[in-house]
Computed example of a mutant assay.
Amino acid sequence: MPETPSPTEGVTSELSDTQVVSETTPDEILASIKADVQRIIATTAFEPNNQTRWQVTKSGISSYLQQRYRQGDLHGETSDQAYWVKVGLGATMTEQDVAEGRMIVELGVLLTAADVQPSGRAVGIKPSDYTTLTFTEGTGAD
Rank of each mutant, 00 (worst) to 15 (best):
I40A: 15
G72M: 00
L89F: 12
L89K: 08
D115F: 01
T139L: 12
G140H: 12
Q96Y: 09
V116L: 05
S16P: 10
S32Y: 10
I40H: 12
Q51M: 03
Q51F: 11
D129K: 00
G88Y: 03
M1N: 05
Q55T: 13
L107Y: 06
V105D: 04
W84K: 03
G120A: 05
G72F: 01
L15Y: 15
S59G: 12
R39L: 14
T44M: 09
S63L: 04
S13P: 00
F46A: 13
E14P: 00
Y130Q: 01
M1P: 06
V85Y: 04
R53Q: 12
S59I: 11
T24E: 15
T92H: 08
I33F: 09
G76I: 02
T112G: 08
T132S: 06
P5N: 07
Q117F: 11
L110N: 03
W84D: 06
A114I: 08
A31Q: 04
M103N: 02
Q67F: 03
S32T: 14
I40W: 05
E77V: 11
P127K: 04
G138Y: 01
V37N: 12
L133C: 13
A42Y: 12
P2I: 02
A91S: 15
K126D: 12
V87G: 01
S32L: 14
S119P: 01
Q19G: 06
I33A: 14
I125T: 10
T136F: 00
K58G: 11
H75E: 05
Q81N: 08
I61P: 11
Q55Y: 07
A45S: 08
F46N: 14
T44I: 06
S59L: 08
Q67L: 04
A141M: 06
T57V: 13
M93A: 14
Q66C: 03
S32M: 12
Q55S: 12
I125E: 05
T134C: 15
G72I: 02
P48M: 00
Q38K: 14
Q55P: 05
T24W: 03
V21N: 02
W54V: 02
I41A: 15
M93H: 05
Q51V: 11
V21R: 10
L74S: 04
T112W: 01
T25L: 11
R121A: 12
V105H: 04
A113Q: 09
S119I: 09
H75C: 07
S13T: 10
L65N: 07
T134G: 14
D17N: 09
T94S: 15
G76M: 01
